[in-house]
Design a protein around this nucleic acid. Structure first.
Lengths: 97, 97
DNA sequence: ATGGTATTAAATTGATTACTAAAATAAACC
DNA sequence: GGTTTATTTTAGTAATCAATTTAATACCAT
């Protein structure tokens, strides 16, 4: 791996390495969810979820669409999806798939 | 994934998400290296390498053996090795393997 | 033991990050 | 228009992290 690539991957890992953000990514594994949906699963405030979503968006990991006054989020980078699946297999093998 | 597992995996990712530490893990992918060897590859001081190695050791990611006044480090967690390989495939596909 | 190399530990400093609460935006509904 | 709901932004504070310097320790060779 070249140093540039190392830097880039490290940034991605960093953005995934917060418990709330990792949980968000797991929740979005195979569906899209609104900010409020996520806040119900993660015990924190709306504003906090919004901030974490922003970090993931700026990193290009997730994308969103608007519908009425809801914002639905989903994972936009296939590689991140693969990585999440791999991590679940490695660290939580009891989960199907 | 249960919350406990999320926390644990997040901690692992966090310890991997620093450029120097990620580079160290890549260097150790298929061999063991001394602190001095690593310092030659990563442009920083001995003390800094040592601190980063310590973080990885405390996380249980790497292990070491002593030989004379050298300390040889290697990845001790097979899952981390798998994860590194997966990340290289995903983000640096031009690398063989 | 002494000198030299390799490694670790401690302490300081500066930078980054996370959370909270409050204010702002935006779109629906009555 | 005014209210409600959903989300975002801003500002402030506290906490954590990273790099450097300095001091300390461990090991080998002579």
């Amino acid at each position: 791996m070249k140093d540039e690539q190392i830097e880039a991957v490290a940034k991605i890992l960093k953005s995934m390495s917060h418990p709330i953000r990792l949980k968000i990514l797991c929740l979005l594994r195979d569906r899209e969810l609104s900010v409020g949906d996520i806040r119900n699963e993660v015990e924190t405030t709306n504003a906090n979820v919004s901030q974490h979503l922003n970090i993931l968006r700026n990193q290009g990991i997730i994308d969103f669409r608007k519908d009425a006054n809801f914002i639905y989020n989903r994972i936009s980078d296939k590689r991140i999806l693969d990585l999440i699946l791999k991590m679940q297999k490695l660290f939580c093998p009891e989960l199907g798939k």
